[in-house]
Structures are given as structure tokens and as C-alpha cells.
């Protein structure tokens, strides 16, 4: 069924293969097509490579770091601006932060938390949004009306404030951040999924499932949702950077992750607060990693959208 979709999408203008090639190389799946299209997109491929490097940095950076992220280098304390700069000799490749902790190890830790928040937040948003949208679209009628009006109402709320309220009321834990960031972003997902479900629910395979007596929840989970995966994957990738932005914003304000844990936003905040102490490395390194990460994610997300969802062009 995906295959048929894929054929329909490849108009002559967007066909990545030479004239007539689709007949010779029959049976290319949507995913193979998408991969080919993705790999021809230089920005997206470059973004993917950078992203993989950053993930490797976040996962394995600890192993090459000369210092742990909690250790305080007492030799630095009190004269961080003079001797705390990046140096190969003492193993502080990115310098130290204001309390003498190794900034390389802290950046590894921050990148890891930021990536985790982005991915888990997007996952939460995707699960809630997909189920909500699929149920709303499939059930239809009055239920659909009510469910979508609820989304209309909720989508207009300035969520950053609610999220901050949430973080204040409950403990400022990373788990709460994961859940909170995800909870505020499922609304767009629900709308997209609902629209897609509407086009799916009158197809023959759904009719066949109904005719053979499959229950409604089972149809939604086993027949509708798997067919939504392409579009869901695209929007999930685009959600990750915005989740990271959310989290960094809150951590920059000092309302996000708490010490000794950190994130890129919290590190940028630390660097920004020490600007006047002439310690530009405290701002520079986290900032570089933050911007590179976002760039890579945006390019990958854009590339995926072009590859999987060509009608969007």
C-alpha cells in the first residue's frame, strides 16, 4: 500500500530516476525512494553526518574527557579568568566553568541532556498526538467536533508560562521537563494526524477490517496508525529541535534542569552570566554546540520532509 502511494507521488517532475527507469527497477519501496531522495540532498546528508557526530560526542565524550563533570579543579579556583581558558596541556580542552569544573565534560553532559529532552519530548508529543488525532479522525462525527474544538482552545494558550508554572509547582526534575515539554507540543501533531486519518478511513482495507469484525480500537492501532508513520516521522524530526529550544529557553532562565545536572541552555546561561569576567570560552563552546545541533536537526528534518512527503513541495 505504501508502494502504491509512492508511485502516485512520483510525478515526472520529481522522479529522481531517468525517464522510464521506474519500469526497469520495479518494486522500489517508499522508504528506498525516500532514502535516495534524502541522500541526494546535500544539506540533509551533511546535517545527518554532523548529527551522528554530535550524538557520538554526547554518548562517548566522557570516555576521552580528562576530567569528570563533577570534579572541581582546585588549582583553577579563584583565578578562572586568568588560567581557566582552553588548554591542551592541563586537559581542560574547553576550559573550566566558573566553579572550576571541566567545560568539555560539562558540554558532553549538556549535549546529552538536551538531546534526550528533545527526543523524549518529541516522543511524548508524537504518542499523545497520534492517538488523539487518529481517534478523533477515525471516530468522526460529534466526537471529532468536540475533540478538535478542545485542540482549538488549548492551542491558543501561551504554554511557556504553564510549563514554568508546572516546573515550579512540581519538582524541577528532568523527568518533569521531559513530560512537560512533550505535553505542550502534541496539539499540532494531533491536527496533522487527524487530517491524514480522514483520508485513510474510507479506504478498502479499513472497510475490509470492519467487515471482518475487527474492533474499533484495534482498527485504529493496527490499521490506521501504521499507515500514518511516514508523516508522523517527518513531524517528529521537526519537533526535536523545537523541544530543545523550549528546554534551553527554560534552563537559560534558571528554571529548567538543576545542578549538578546541566543542559546546553543552562551552560549558555552560565557563560552569559560570566561575560563580564572576560571568559568568552564559557559562552562560546556551549553556544557552538547548541547552534550546530539545531542546524543539523533542521537540515535533517527538512530533508526528511522533502524525501517522505514530496507533495508538500
Amino acid at each position: 500500500m505504501f508502494r502504491r502511494f509512492a508511485r502516485a507521488f512520483i510525478s515526472p517532475a520529481t522522479n529522481p530516476y531517468p525517464e522510464g527507469a521506474t519500469e526497469i527497477v520495479a518494486g522500489r519501496s517508499l522508504w528506498a525512494d525516500a532514502r535516495a531522495r534524502f541522500l541526494r540532498n546535500k544539506a540533509a546528508t551533511g546535517g545527518l553526518i554532523v548529527l551522528l557526530l554530535l550524538i557520538a560526542f554526547a554518548l562517548f565524550g566522557d570516555l576521552i574527557a580528562q576530567w569528570s563533570n563533577e570534579e572541581i579543579d582546585w588549582a583553577m579556583l579563584g583565578r578562572v579568568p586568568e588560567v581557566g581558558g582552553p588548554s591542551l596541556a592541563n586537559g581542560h580542552w574547553f576550559g573550566v566553568d566558573e566553579t572550576g569544573r571541566d567545560l568539555f565534560a560539562r558540554t558532553v553532559q549538556g549535549t546529552r541532556i538536551s538531546l534526550a529532552v528533545g527526543i523524549v519530548g518529541a516522543l511524548v508529543a508524537v504518542i499523545i498526538g497520534t492517538l488523539y488525532g487518529a481517534v478523533s479522525g477515525y471516530v468522526g462525527g460529534r466526537t471529532d467536533q468536540v475533540m478538535m474544538r478542545i485542540v482549538d482552545v488549548l492551542i491558543a494558550i501561551p504554554y511557556m508560562f504553564v510549563l514554568i508554572l508546572l516546573m515550579v509547582v512540581f519538582e524541577r526534575s528532568v523527568i518533569m521537563l521531559f513530560v512537560g515539554v512533550g505535553l505542550i507540543s502534541w496539539l499540532d501533531m494531533a491536527r496533522i494526524v487527524r487530517g491524514q486519518t480522514l483520508t485513510l478511513k474510507n479506504r478498502e482495507f479499513v472497510e475490509a477490517a470492519i467487515a471482518t469484525g475487527v474492533s474499533t480500537p484495534r482498527i485504529i492501532l493496527r490499521h490506521i496508525v501504521p499507515n500514518l508513520l511516514g508523516i508522523v516521522a517527518v513531524y517528529a524530526t521537526l519537533l526535536v529541535p523545537s523541544m530543545i529550544l523550549f528546554e534551553s529557553f527554560i534552563s537559560f532562565l534558571g528554571l529548567g534542569v538543576q545542578e549538578p545536572s546541566t543542559s546546553l541552555g543552562a551552560l549558555i546561561n552560565g557563560g552569559a552570566q560570566n561575560l563580564r569576567n572576560e571568559t568568552p570560552w564559557m559562552l562560546g563552546f556551549p553556544l557552538f554546540f547548541f547552534c550546530t545541533l539545531l542546524f543539523a536537526l533542521f537540515f535533517v528534518g527538512d530533508g526528511l520532509r522533502d524525501a517522505l512527503d514530496p507533495k508538500d513541495r
Partner: peptide, 22 residues
């Protein structure tokens, strides 16, 4: 417009202060 996507206000603000103030 691509560049500004990764330059949210909490990135812009410290950079601006670094350049124009310090």
C-alpha cells in the same frame, strides 16, 4: 532566515552584549 532559526533570543542576547557592550 536559516541562520536566525538557530539564533533564538537567548543566543542573540549574550552575543550582542559581548560585541556591542564589551
Amino acid at each position: 532566515s536559516i541562520g536566525a532559526q538557530v539564533l533564538p533570543n537567548f543566543v542573540m542576547a549574550p552575543i550582542l552584549v559581548l560585541v556591542f557592550t564589551l
